[in-house]
Design a binder for these strands. Structure first.
Length: 503
RNA sequence: GGCGGCAUAGCCAAGCGGUAAGGCAGAGGUCUGCAAAACCUUUAUCCCCGGUUCGAGUCCGGGUGCCGCCUCCA
């Protein structure tokens, strides 16, 4: 089965075939930097990071550009409110956004252009639009002449006649559906020189300029929130295709993520941002992995409800996965078994005991099935929700083997468990989730609560095991309580004791 | 009013014509010195009404209820 992508343009799932073989060029609309980003703004970031990861996982070379809108009326308003220069606002929130990306552990972008760095390119495109007869100057502003662009409405399904009937303000443009390409500056507003006087770019034009500059015309994927379909993306198409009428479609696949909702409220920055929705604050309480599993447990196009309880549920779900990984890794690295080489994630060799119902053969079947079904789910328009279900199925299946009373660890089984944990880890990485043990310890090391290092913990566990052998359970429990006070949880198995750090 | 989307168990959520994945929560059980973790068992006929079909959450028509967008900063 090949990858299918839901294209907003056709309102259908289409087979994904990039313009250039083996290469994908994608562009996603980034934030306007006039406030901290909310959990709602984090959805496209997490979703399209997953999209990028999956495309790379399937063998594509991906170029991924995300813009930063650093000149816009909301920014100017905020600067006026606070009585500061607009640069003070944007530099503060750009910095905050970059920190959020870092803390969310989002992969690198090929480029992150800012609108104010694109003025020259923006002016060139506007000039082209005017030269091609699709733009006009009126009262110092430049407008796009919507009636002259035949395909207007092809993305959003809006009809020009319907829109013409809308209430109109007092503007110098010819028709009320025309939109601004270049906006003249009022006194005191930030502005740049242009052939049409001092002013700034309209809201939509920067994305056209940036995507063309960094990725060329006819992008493979252009993404963003569903609320951007109209007018933002509709206008981008009009501008871009009017500027370059011979180049065909501006974008091949339009992808839009659903909104995050809070009960009875719209999570919109412009209507007041509650501190509970600010990503920065959420990241103080939850790991980026929790936020990612929360979001990716729902299909990216569905609406998603946000609440503290939802994040708590996601935390528990993620814990189930890390418990599995810990158990599997513990069992596959038990001493006096021949060490299993760390690089294994292939299935060869696992069937060396041919008993049809032997644990390793069963695990072999589960791994094989998991890989296939995970791929099928993701190939179906990046259905990470379904893929998550398949992951839990797999974990449950392997758990039922390793927790059964008859279970006995052997070299072959150890090998199959090593492969199991490797498969789970590598597939979680598609979601941007990294549960690698070494990294978890490193993170815990940074946590001030924990003042025991691994060696000290192991020493205490040894002491407790000795006490248990002597059937001195009081002492054993004392040690366990002591470890608990340092945030270390023990699990006794017949093969030995496993420990983990509290989340 | 226009365009688009959604409605599945207590909560969240897959499902794209063949007889309801998964997570969280609840109940009972197993393992354990006790715990922890995990496993087993248990909890739905899919908003309503018509229609197509041998067969429909799944397709079509009509309701009802939610949600997003409908641009110049409000």
């Amino acid at each position: 089965m090949s990858l299918k992508v839901y294209n907003t343009l056709s309102r259908k799932k289409e087979e994904f075939i990039p313009v250039i073989d083996k290469k994908v060029r994608m562009y996603v609309c980034g934030p306007t930097v006039y406030n901290y980003i909310s959990i709602g703004n984090a959805r496209p970031v997490i979703v399209f990071n997953m999209v990028r990861n999956y495309l790379e996982h399937t063998g594509y070379n991906v170029e991924f550009v995300q813009n930063i809108t650093d000149i816009e009326d909301k920014i100017i308003n905020k600067a006026n409110e606070e009585g500061v220069d607009f640069n003070d606002i944007t530099s503060k929130y750009i910095q905050a956004f970059l920190e959020d990306l870092e803390n969310l552990e989002i992969g690198r972008f090929s480029a992150m252009p800012k609108a104010t760095e694109m003025i020259k390119d923006i002016i060139e495109i506007i000039q082209r639009i005017i030269d091609n007869g699709h733009g006009y100057v009126a009262g110092g502003d430049v407008y796009f002449d919507v009636l002259k662009f035949n395909n207007y409405g092809k993305l959003s399904g809006q009809k020009k006649e319907e829109m013409m009937a809308q209430e109109s303000g007092q503007f110098s443009k010819k028709n009320n559906i025309d939109f601004t390409l270049w906006k003249s500056a009022k006194p005191g507003e930030p502005s740049w020189d242009s052939p049409w006087g001092q002013g700034r770019p309209g809201w939509h034009i920067e994305c056209s300029a940036m995507s063309m500059k960094y990725l060329d015309f006819k992008l493979d994927i252009h993404g963003g929130g569903i609320d951007l379909v109209f007018p933002h993306h509709e206008n981008e198409i009009a501008q871009s295709e009017a500027a370059f009428p011979d180049k065909g479609d501006f974008v091949k696949y339009w992808m839009h993520n659903g909104m995050i909702e809070v009960k009875d409220e719209k999570m919109s920055k412009s209507k007041g941002l509650k501190s509970d929705w600010i990503l920065k604050n959420l990241l103080k309480k939850h790991s980026p992995d929790v936020i990612k599993i929360y979001m990716l447990s729902t299909h990216y196009r569905s609406p998603l409800e946000f609440s503290a309880e939802k994040l708590e549920e996601a935390r528990k779900a993620l814990e189930k996965i890390s418990n599995f990984l810990r158990n599997a890794e513990f069992l596959s690295s038990i001493e006096n078994l021949k060490p299993v080489s760390s690089g294994i994630n292939e299935l060869t060799d696992i069937k060396s005991d041919f008993e049809p119902d032997s644990p390793s053969v069963k695990i072999y079947e589960y791994v094989k099935y998991f890989k296939e079904e995970f791929k099928n789910a993701m190939d179906d328009d990046f259905n990470s929700a379904k893929a998550t279900g398949i992951l839990f199925d797999f974990i449950g299946n392997v758990n039922s083997i390793i927790q059964s009373p008859e279970f006995k660890i052997t070299e072959t089984v150890a090998r199959s468990l090593k492969i199991s944990s490797g498969i789970v880890l590598s597939h979680l990485k598609i979601f941007g989730i990294n549960l690698d043990k070494s990294r978890q310890s490193l993170k815990a090391g940074n946590d001030k609560r924990i003042s025991l290092d691994d060696a000290e913990i192991l020493e205490l566990i040894e002491q407790r095991l000795y006490a248990r052998k002597q059937r001195d359970f009081k002492k054993a429990d004392r040690i366990r309580d002591r470890l608990k006070s340092f945030g270390v949880i023990l699990e006794d198995r017949k093969e030995g004791t496993i420990w983990k750090r509290e989340e």
